[in-house]
Every structure is written in structure tokens, then in C-alpha cells.
Design a protein around this nucleic acid. Structure first.
Length: 514
RNA sequence: GCCGCGUUGGUCAAGGGGUUAAGACGCCUCCCUUUCACGGAGGAAUCACGGGUUCGAAUCCCGUACGUGGUACCA
């Protein structure tokens, strides 16, 4: 059996959204599971929709996910070039070969004439408005025109396209690895354009020619391609390559959470979650659209979430590393129905990944977040202890900031309002004594700090619970954060005492006013 | 309109003739914790509908409804 080769073939028309990343991921997982090659091919045959920077963006977003193509425009292999615009000459040759064999023809109709055809068919109440077997002889093409007329138009450089000639009354059958046997009637398939007037191929021609030339063994793509699969199957046959045709699979679509339609690039802002993996700077609008990375997702969680949207291994396991996904992935277990994207579940995946990661693993990404807030990390060891302390309460990496910024900056506002109602002189006295005792402490560890704290509360005949909340607010500014004694131990003796004193003076001032 | 694909709780889903129809997210209650999380124990909530086939259907078949995709010189 020949080596497994799959390709991911996006158009560089903008940011790569969730659905695209998942298609790339499934292709990648399949390839790696079978020790095959994962090829990135850029389908840039539509010059009008080309967006500068999109190609590099696609490479970068896949790289962030850990999906590294074996071949691509950035990493040329034996089948270069990997940009279809650079393969332009190949396609024309095959298109003309098809014309010679009688499986395609030149068509000289202008867009206006085709539009008029549709209007006419619609007016006649026809259900099939396509350019196909039932109308092709009424149109201006090498089938309806004589050989001399056709040649004359060609010689005069009259603009033309090459269309596939779909035979009527035939059945096209093929096996989809996910959906099983698919049968379609050629009467519902139109004579698709294969080569455009500008000499560029359409997707239909390009995908078949390139999959053949690049020795692709498995062609996996989104479900939106299912209706045009018969055209591709027929092309493989007409081109004489049927024995080399790849196996097919059409992945289900990722749908909008609120129904109607597949998730699109525009849904991100509308629904309040990213649709890109990394930030996309749209050159057309100048907008910077945030990606999952930017809002604090770990790449491991992101691909885990995508992999499970439409696939599972049949067990209850939900958390998978890339390596495990490669090991356990199977096309047959990919669903055939679309799935609505659920951002809440996505966040759950991230939370799980943060909880399961060690402080050392988390450190580089968290450090980056702190650096963006202009906090330089001087003590790496202490930083890791802080990460370990708060990671369970962080759903997104960005949560590390609010969960632990008080270790690095003195709280700006102290929520004295939550202390004041139950504040009194004896509590004040307690903290004064706490400061004095803590000052004498030679060690500074959480368990001892707690022991000391409780000892003094019992001496003062106050329940610890009544003092714990004020203490917390003194240290962090509000009612949040991990255990107070852990906070205190990491803050250090000097800083702890300083913060208690600070709040005490605030409370005294408030009392004086009142 | 026509053609294709699909349909198990609100969402992701297991299960593919006999199950009390798993599990997860979210939601609710309680425990733990005198912050909030984490963790633990519970709870509400599902086989789109109608016909067949069968002793027996969520599972197989047909129809309907609904969803979704395609119907471009876009991919």
C-alpha cells in the first residue's frame, strides 16, 4: 500500500476559522496515525479574493496548534509548487486534454448571457436553473457551434471558459468513509466551469489535478463539498486516473450556537467568542480580531476541544493530548451530523488543561501575560509557587492576572466597606497584636502563620471566622484569592505586616470620620 | 424551487433490535471551605413525528416535518 498522504487546502482569503482548523486537525491526525504526510496546499486561484498575509497567517495558526505540515509553500517537498497560482500551466493542459477526449468543451457565453438563461428557465418554471445537458446546445459553445466557428472565436481571442460535459442519466457512486455509499444522479449536476476565462482553474479542476499530481491518498474536506463530489469523481474518471483516486470523507459542519447556519468568521464578534486560533489583523478593515490564544486558551485545550466536536473515541475520556489524539483518532468515528459550537464547553476544556498542567508548564505563557501588564518576574521559583497556588481557579490563562496580581502590586483599593460594619476596637487590638507576634516570627510558613493566628484569636475570645475575612481584604484588597495564609507566606513578612498596617490606618480614619 | 446530507436532554454525545437510554458542559440543591474556586454527593432535562417490519424498535424500512449544505468564471 502506498504511503498515506493527505492535504489541507485552504484559500488565503482571510483568517482561518474554527472549522478550517478542525479540518486541518483531522487531516493531520489521520496522516500521523498512519505515518503519512500532511501537505498544506494554498488554493489561491481566485485572484479577486486574495488577501495578503493570509497564507502566512494560516501557517502560523496551525503552528500554534502544533499542526506542522510536512510539505507546504513554506517547506517545499517533492511536489512543489504548493500554491495553485504557481501551478497555473498544469491545469490548462489537462482541461484541453479533456476537450479533446470529448469530456469538456469551450464555452463563450458572457455572464450576461448566462444570467439571461437563468431568467428564462425561471420564467418557464423549470426547477433546474443550471448550465447543463438540457440547455447546453442552446448556448454558445463548441458543442453547439461548428468546428470552424469555434476555431474562429478561439483565434480571435474571444474570452472562453472550459466546462465539463456531464453525461445525462448516469449514476455516480462513491464511498465516503464517514457516510458510507453515496449515489447521485448526473441529471442534477451541471456543467461546471473547469478553467476560467483568466486561465486559472476552478476548485473542481485544481483539486483533482493536484490531488493526482501530489499523490494524495485520502481526500478529506468539509461537508459543503459533498454536492460537488460527483464532478470530482467524474473528473478522475475522465482524466483516466480512476485507479489513483483517493478515498473520500466529508466532515460535518460546525454550526452557530444560536442556530441557522454554519459558523462563520463574522459570528465571533456577534456572539462574544473568538472564531480564530490566533489573532487576525484584517487588512481590509484594519480590525484586529482576537483569537483563542489572545483570550487565554492553551493550544492543547483548543485542539482538544475541536477534536471532540464531531469525534470521540467511544469511551468517556474527554481530555486528550495531541499524541493521544493521533493514537486514537479514526475517521469512521467522525460524526455525520453538524455540531453547534459551545463556547462554555470550550472554556471547560481550557480549565481542565490548566488544572492538569504543572506550574512549570504554565509558567512561560503566564509570564507573558504578566509582562504585558508590565510586571517583570524576578523570582521564578516564587512565581511558580504562585501559579501552583492559583491555577485551579483559572479558567483562562488571562485569569492568572486577576487571581494573583496582588502578589506583585499593592492593592490599589481596599474594600473596607466589607469590614467596617462589624469592625470594633477588640478586632483592631487583635491585629495590632498579630503584627507584633508576626514581627517576632523567625520562620514564615503558612501552617505556622495559621497556628499563630488561631492562637491569638482564642486568647482574644474571637472566632477566627470573624477575622479571616478582614485579614484577606487587608492582604488582597477584596473577597477573593486562595487561602489567606498561603498568600501571606508568599507575600513575605514585611509585606504582610505593611498591608495590615495600611488597612488598619484606613479603618481608623474611617472611624474617626464616623 | 431542485439536489445532497443529517435528526438521542438547552449544548456536546455513548448506545446501531431486548439497557433503569452512559458520560460531559451548562443549570439547580446539598457537603467541604467562615472569600471565591477546586473537590464530593444528589437533582431536573432526551430517542422529531407518522406508518410499517418484528414476539420486541432509539436502533431496520418508508413517508412527513425540521435543520443544514449545494445550486458562481468562490472556495
Amino acid at each position: 500500500m502506498s504511503k498515506v498522504r493527505v492535504r489541507f487546502a485552504p484559500s488565503p482569503t482571510g483568517g482561518l476559522h474554527l472549522g478550517g482548523v478542525r479540518t486541518a486537525l483531522y487531516n493531520y491526525l489521520f496522516a500521523k496515525k498512519h505515518n503519512g504526510d500532511f501537505v498544506l496546499r494554498i488554493e489561491d486561484t481566485d485572484q479577486g479574493r486574495y488577501v495578503p498575509g493570509a497564507e502566512q497567517y494560516i501557517i502560523d495558526s496551525l503552528a500554534w496548534c502544533g499542526i506542522l505540515p510536512d510539505e507546504g509553500p513554506h517547506k517545499e517537498g517533492d511536489y512543489a509548487p504548493y500554491r495553485q497560482s504557481e501551478r497555473k500551466n498544469f491545469y490548462k493542459e489537462y482541461a484541453e486534454d479533456l476537450v479533446k477526449k470529448g469530456h469538456a468543451y469551450y464555452a463563450f457565453d458572457t455572464p450576461e448571457e448566462i444570467e439571461a438563461l437563468r431568467e428564462k428557465l425561471k420564467a418557464q418554471g423549470k426547477s433546474n436553473l443550471q448550465y447543463g445537458h438540457h440547455v447546453r446546445l442552446d448556448m454558445k459553445n463548441s458543442l453547439s457551434l461548428s468546428g470552424e466557428e469555434t476555431q474562429a472565436l478561439l483565434d480571435a481571442n474571444f474570452p472562453y471558459v472550459i466546462r465539463i460535459k456531464i453525461e445525462r442519466d448516469q449514476f455516480v457512486s462513491f464511498k465516503d468513509m464517514i457516510r458510507g455509499d453515496i449515489h447521485m444522479d448526473t441529471n442534477s449536476v451541471d456543467d461546471k466551469v473547469l478553467l476560467k476565462a483568466d486561465g486559472m482553474p476552478t476548485y473542481h479542476l485544481a483539486v483533482v489535478v493536484d490531488d493526482y499530481l501530489m499523490k494524495i491518498t485520502h481526500a478529506f474536506r468539509g461537508e459543503e463539498w459533498l454536492p460537488s463530489a460527483p464532478v470530482h469523481i467524474l473528473l478522475w474518471k475522465y482524466l483516466g486516473w480512476k485507479d489513483h483516486m483517493p478515498q473520500w470523507a466529508h466532515f460535518p459542519l460546525i454550526l452557530k450556537p444560536d442556530g441557522n447556519g454554519k459558523l462563520s468568521k463574522r459570528d465571533g464578534e456577534r456572539l462574544g467568542f473568538p472564531v480564530f486560533s490566533i489573532g487576525w489583523n484584517d487588512p481590509a478593515t484594519g480590525d484586529l480580531l482576537k483569537g483563542f490564544k489572545d483570550i487565554g486558551f492553551m493550544p492543547e485545550a483548543f485542539i482538544n476541544m475541536l477534536a471532540l466536536l464531531g469525534w470521540n473515541d467511544g469511551t468517556e475520556q474527554e481530555i486528550f493530548s495531541l499524541e493521544e489524539l493521533i493514537e486514537k483518532f479514526s475517521i469512521e468515528r467522525v460524526h455525520s451530523s453538524g455540531a453547534k459550537f459551545d463556547f462554555e464547553k470550550g472554556k471547560w476544556f481550557n480549565h481542565e488543561w490548566i488544572k492538569r498542567s504543572t506550574a512549570a508548564q504554565l509558567e512561560p505563557a503566564v509570564k507573558e501575560i504578566f509582562q504585558e501588564k508590565n510586571i517583570a518576574i524576578s523570582d521564578e521559583n516564587k512565581f511558580k509557587q504562585i501559579i501552583a497556588l492559583v491555577k485551579d481557579r483559572c479558567t483562562l490563562l488571562t485569569d492568572f492576572w486577576e487571581q494573583s496580581n496582588f502578589f506583585f502590586i499593592t492593592p490599589g483599593a481596599i474594600d473596607t466597606g466589607s469590614i467596617l460594619p462589624k469592625w470594633n476596637a477588640s478586632k483592631n487590638l487583635f491585629f495590632v497584636e498579630l503584627i507584633n507576634t508576626y514581627k517576632l516570627s523567625t520562620t514564615w510558613v503558612a501552617t505556622e502563620l495559621e497556628h499563630t493566628f488561631k492562637e491569638i484569636t482564642s486568647m482574644h475570645r474571637i472566632k477566627p471566622g470573624e477575622l479571616l475575612l478582614p485579614f484577606r481584604i487587608m492582604l488582597v484588597g477584596g473577597k477573593y484569592g486562595p487561602g489567606v495564609f498561603e498568600i501571606s507566606s508568599l507575600l513575605g513578612k514585611e509585606e504582610t505586616i505593611k498591608r495590615i498596617q495600611h488597612t488598619l490606618s484606613l479603618l481608623a480614619g474611617n472611624n474617626a470620620k464616623g
